[in-house]
Design a binder for these strands. Structure first.
Length: 230
DNA sequence: ACAACGATACCCT
DNA sequence: GGGTATCGTTGTT
């Protein structure tokens, strides 16, 4: 009961101050990782590149915890690769896997080693550029999957360690005005593509959204609830 | 030095 | 649903 009440308060604190299209501030990221993970759904991930905005609505994320989570890159302590994960909340952590890039948002107080992996976004601005960067046209081929969305937004390890609160290259914004007030259902389920801690339900996504990764029959698995954007 | 292995994606059936 | 390309990081000689 106490945990639920705390989460409720955290959610209110993060949404009350957010105005449509406004960049998310440092306080957004400094919360417990699971709270940040679910609050990231519906927010706008923005990449400014050559004076042009590329952006997408966050529709799927995974939490990677600072303790008790063997699947987290921070589990074996800090290293040159994961150093950004131990920086202050709101830091961008980009890592390579299978010769591709994936993007995380650092959470919690500095030094904890917790982050949220963004696994899928819905293209919002600059779709044609994303299609060119990806070399693909189909909606599900553009930004569904953590490495695909990085390629679509031209995010590489060059952006590793950026401060999302101050950077002019990458940041997050509150949901666009067009989406404020829209009711959505969130599903919480197990994470994808890991071999440790496979049973922890730390994956969050918008129920039934066509651009969520994984098989459609898994989309309704797990526990779900509704929330109102903005 | 070197070998193993991923928080993947692509292409094939 | 399954096999594999591909390469940086890591841990081991």
């Amino acid at each position: 009961v106490w945990g639920f009440r705390q989460r409720q308060l955290e959610r209110q604190a993060a949404t009350v101050t957010d105005l449509p299209g406004q960049r998310l501030g440092a306080d957004f990221y400094a919360s417990p990782t699971c709270a940040v993970a679910e609050q990231l759904l519906g927010k706008l991930l923005v990449r400014e590149r050559d004076g042009q905005r590329l952006s997408g609505i966050v529709v799927e994320v995974e939490a990677y915890l600072s303790a008790g989570d063997p699947a987290s890159h921070s589990h074996r302590g800090a290293s040159p690769r994961n150093a950004a994960m131990f920086c202050h909340p709101g830091t961008l952590y980009v890592y390579t896997i299978h010769a591709r890039y994936c993007l995380n948002v650092v959470t919690e107080p500095p030094g904890r080693g917790a982050a949220v992996l963004i696994r899928a976004v819905e293209p919002w601005e600059g779709v044609a550029v994303m299609q060119r960067l990806r070399g693909k046209q189909a909606p599900r081929e553009l930004t569904t999957g953590p490495a695909r969305l990085c390629q679509a937004l031209d995010i590489t390890t060059d952006q590793n360690g950026l401060d999302l609160v101050r950077s002019h290259d990458v940041w997050l914004e509150a949901a666009p005005a067009a989406l404020v007030g829209r009711r959505r259902r969130i599903v919480r389920a197990v994470r994808i593509g890991i071999s440790q801690a496979v049973d922890l339900p730390l994956r969050y996504f918008l129920d039934g959204h066509r651009l969520v990764s994984g098989l459609a029959r898994h989309h309704s698995a797990g526990r779900s609830w509704t929330f109102a954007e903005g």
